[in-house]
């Protein structure tokens, strides 16, 4: 395959940045999108141009590091995948592909396609945990049975990889899917319910402080989420927050 790439280049957070156009050839349909970017980078280095900087690590769709907005969609046109699992067979020979970083006030560009998602860490710091210290004599893990449906739903919410595709894809750059997934995971488990009120209030407050937008319930996030996390979690967080606001 031969492709034309329009890639966002930005030297630093302060730099304005612009699109550059590159050609790549002999791309195999079995390559992942990031392997195609590797080919581009090797080509750029040989020509004496600095390589395109992008976040990536595990390359098996679980670390949540890769973050490219490809042809107008987070992680590109395929569903249920991160950019590292997007394969070139989803494109056609001769295609022009636009590659951009996630764009949100809360996710400033670090360089080229790499953004700073530490806002997510700060939202977790605000309450995305259960306050239990390391202890050698906790109750036995089987002391509290948990209904399988709840355990499964908590797991489904917990599979969030924190990649930020929900924010990137949302027309409002809202982080509701990310925050609600964590709130839901704990709200569904008895261990998590102890701190439920403070958790949802503090996490929502931090989410707002970070400058994410509001939720219009377009549902775009759940479509683009590589882990298929449902907006049912957003509804659950809405309930949790309402309950917390009325009772606290």
């Amino acid at each position: 395959m031969n492709l034309t790439l329009k890639v966002w280049r930005q030297k630093s957070a302060q730099d304005a940045g612009k699109f550059e156009t590159y050609q790549v050839s002999d791309i195999s349909p079995d390559m992942s999108f990031l392997e195609m970017m590797d080919v581009l980078n090797e080509q750029l280095i040989s020509k004496g141009t600095e390589s395109v900087v992008f976040d990536h690590d595990c390359r098996e769709g679980i670390c949540g590091m890769c973050s490219m907005f490809i042809n107008g969609e987070a992680h590109g046109p395929d569903r249920g995948v991160t950019t590292c699992q997007l394969h070139m067979r989803k494109f056609k020979d001769g295609d022009t592909i636009t590659v951009e970083p996630w764009r949100a006030k809360a996710f400033p560009v670090v360089r080229d396609l790499m953004v700073d998602r530490s806002a997510f860490d700060r939202v977790i710091q605000a309450g995305g945990y259960i306050s239990v210290n390391t202890m050698g004599n906790l109750p036995d893990a089987n002391a509290t049975p948990i209904e399988k449906h709840d355990a499964d739903a908590a797991f489904d919410a917990a599979t969030c990889i924190g990649c930020g595709a929900c924010v990137a894809t949302c027309k409002n750059a809202s982080a509701m899917l990310f925050v609600s997934a964590k709130v839901s995971q704990f709200a569904l488990l008895p261990q998590g319910q102890v701190e439920a009120t403070d958790r949802v209030r503090n996490m929502v407050q931090q989410m707002d402080l970070e400058g994410f937008g509001n939720c219009t319930n377009t549902g775009a996030c759940e479509v683009e989420c590589p882990k298929g996390i449902s907006i049912e979690n957003i509804a659950r967080m809405n309930r949790e927050y309402l309950k917390a606001s009325i009772t606290a």
């Binding site: 966002w8 107008g72 764009r103 949100a104 750059a173 809202s174």
Partner: peptide, 13 residues
Amino acid sequence: QNMAARPVNYGSY
């Protein structure tokens, strides 16, 4: 607020 949450728009969306 929503507009402010994305100060730089996508080239392709």
